[in-house]
Write a protein that binds this DNA or RNA. Structure first.
Lengths: 338, 338
DNA sequence: TTGAAAGCGCTACCAG
DNA sequence: CTGGTAGCGCTTTCAA
């Protein structure tokens, strides 16, 4: 069986209090006893129980991460960034794929509480924002990444979606496009909305206005993107957009597939720009021009904020906005002169 | 603060034992008290502490999953499958990206023990297999997925790598290829070795033998695959392979990129076949022909085995071998007649 | 310096 | 049926 603090104490001929003290580097212990105890711990391969220590009011050193789907490359990359930073600070990560379903969010939120995680990182949307308030009442530290819930006093780390949208627009405009369209995510996704806003704002600066059916709402799957893109690309040539801004890489891939199916060449006949710069963007054909989110720094930052928060050393609630970056690959080009 | 069992008991005017009993559905409680207690729990939004209950000898309902890198789509997909099955059985998942470094494996193994996870799912390789024996001595349930350590008595779920290799070979042979080459993972990766074996065995059945420099060892990155593929594809035309079997999709993508760089067309000039059928395979250009692993059933199965194991109802150690499947997309075709 | 003892929240056994 | 109580492994006073 596993060795306990009692085993170590007995073996070393001291009290459990002494053992506890050397483990936590607290209290005064003679150097002699100290090394003796250390030796015994080593010998017994003693692994202190985090469970027991947590019960006495200390931390569990476990964090929860809620994302829509860990198998989605974007969130997998976020998870890795969060895991690494957490790990370097001594925390483990429990992953929770919510599929964006409130019911799953609720279930996980409750589970994580029962397991006494030290804090939660929310990277998933939810329809009912009230789900989080009970947590906050209980003073369970929460931070958000890549999503935000306005009027919720929590640290938040996001990319500047609006600016990302303007970057995409500028790139396309610079290339000479004038007939544009957007593949957006569901309207309730704030980040997507902001991207669209930034995109449209930039267009309107030079007097371009998108008709409503040129802004399509999709879920977040490749299939969805493809379906909507097909409709857009099947419009009569005069209306058909020459460039597509997709609010994430998955949708952009759908658009690529739609173009292929319609025998349209990318970027000659149609330019496509994505968002996120996941690994997917680098392996498509053609490689996807996209707006990159600085995932790694974001994951790092959100963990740092969470740790600060649960150490009560937290500054006023911050909203950290990171700058996106345009990554030009080969899915965008000047429109062909017709 | 969080409500405890005491709060519920006090509020309901009963003993904590009674509360505990209704929670666990044990003992005899009058229907009356029972509903009353339930009502109070509801009212106080009582969340029983898994920590405390675990300390009394019950389970933590937490599982650990070790993989090389959660941001690698293949492992992210495994994680999702494992998470789902675990979740449906009431278990949470702690993810651990090891980067295939023994040092990280060891650290995580120790951490998971300290946190008293109920079991661990190993999907990462390690040089020093002895790292697992202390766990087994302590009777911590372990199962393996997508990796195996022969002569270690643990349940293992793998795809039939050898057969996968033969499938790839048959497909290429049927297409008419005779000059073949392999992009393998490091020789210590058993699954890769088996794939190579299956592939070569099939070739030798019809008298084809690969020269040694046509079997290249890579790490598991796209860059690595590309580098090795470049060398292969730059061979004089007479020696240059017309088809490449890559032991995973990442390497295959590297091969695709190498071909592109050399202005070779896929599949006309060079056929490429991957392994794993991750999401990446469906978004490349051309879409990748690959050998699919039944990830979802594998994840489900491995969790079931683990749960059985920790309920002590475990049958003799099983090695579950699932059948791979050839997914034909567009990266393979008959060699062009030269 | 050191150790006895009181919990942390919950389970399980046992006497009523 | 019901409730008192002894732990689970560890932390933290508080005396000695």
């Amino acid at each position: 069986m596993k060795a306990t603090i009692y085993d170590v104490a007995r073996e070393a001929g001291v009290s459990i209090a002494a053992v506890s003290q050397v483990m936590n580097g607290k209290g005064k212990i003679s150097e002699e006893r100290r090394t003796e105890i250390l030796k015994v711990m080593e010998k017994l391969n003693y692994q202190p129980s985090v469970i027991a220590s947590a019960l006495t009011g200390k931390k569990t050193y476990t964090l929860g991460l809620l994302v829509p789907d860990i198998s989605n490359p974007f969130f997998a990359e976020i998870a890795r960034a969060v895991e690494d930073q957490g790990h370097s600070l001594g925390y483990s990560l429990v992953i929770c794929s919510t599929d964006n379903k409130d019911e799953r969010v609720e279930r996980y939120l409750s589970l994580l509480q029962q397991k006494s995680v030290d804090g939660m990182i929310i990277g998933t949307g939810m329809d009912n924002k009230d789900m989080l308030t009970p947590l906050m009442d209980r003073a369970i530290p929460i931070v958000m990444i890549a999503r935000e819930m306005p009027d919720l006093a929590v640290h938040t780390v996001v990319v500047d979606d609006f600016v990302g949208g303007t970057m995409a627009a500028k790139h396309l405009l610079d290339l000479g496009h004038t007939r544009l369209a957007i593949l957006a995510e569901h309207a309730k996704v704030i980040s997507s909305r902001e991207r669209v806003k930034g995109f449209m704002a930039t267009l309107s600066e030079i007097g371009i206005k998108l008709s409503e059916d040129h802004v399509r709402n999709c879920r977040y799957t490749v299939e969805d993107g493809k379906r909507e893109a097909l409709e857009l690309l099947e419009l009569p040539a005069a209306e058909r957009p020459t460039a597509l801004f997709c609010c994430n890489d998955m949708l952009a891939i759908g658009a690529l597939q739609a173009a292929k199916q319609l025998k349209l060449r990318v970027p000659e006949d149609i330019s496509v720009i994505g968002f996120d710069n996941t690994i997917l963007a680098s392996v498509t054909d053609p490689p996807l021009t996209t707006i990159a989110q600085p995932i790694e720094p974001m994951g790092k930052k959100v963990v740092d904020l969470l740790i600060l928060e649960l150490k009560k050393k937290s500054p006023a609630k911050q909203r950290v906005v990171m700058l996106p970056e345009l990554i030009v690959r080969q899915s965008t080009a000047a429109p062909s002169k017709v």
